[in-house]
Design a protein around this nucleic acid. Structure first.
Length: 100
DNA sequence: GCTTTGACTCTCG
DNA sequence: TCGAGAGCCAAAG
């Protein structure tokens, strides 16, 4: 069972195009909540593992925060998408950041 | 049903 | 610039 809150998070995640990323802050702000932690929780469950690109969601400063499979894996995936990662952080964060 | 915890972010010293 | 504290939200115990 997926709550409406989680569904919103997943829908927004799917909106992020390939080669772009978003932040928990953007999602939370779009949904209309200030508890960005809840957003991370929804992604941590991620019942739609391959469908929802949860690895395209990073911190507000473009730094890689928490990932169920490990930050290293996350960095690899992002690098594959064409996003530059430097020391667990997005290099051109401002350029790849997708705003809703 | 209240308390604890967590993939967060902001502010202050 | 860095570390600590506070605020917010939802799920799990």
């Amino acid at each position: 069972m997926v709550t409406k809150f989680e569904n919103k998070v997943y829908e927004l995640c799917k909106k992020v195009p390939k080669g772009k990323i978003t932040s928990y802050k953007e999602i939370g702000d779009k949904i209309g909540i200030k508890g960005y932690r809840a957003v991370g929780m929804a992604l941590n469950k991620n019942p739609f593992a391959p469908i929802v690109p949860c690895h395209r969601v990073c911190g507000s400063d473009g730094n890689l925060v928490g990932f169920a499979s490990g930050l290293k894996k996350k960095a690899e995936l992002l690098r594959k998408e064409g996003i530059k990662i430097k020391n667990n952080k997005i290099e051109n964060f401002n350029s790849v950041l997708y705003k809703f």
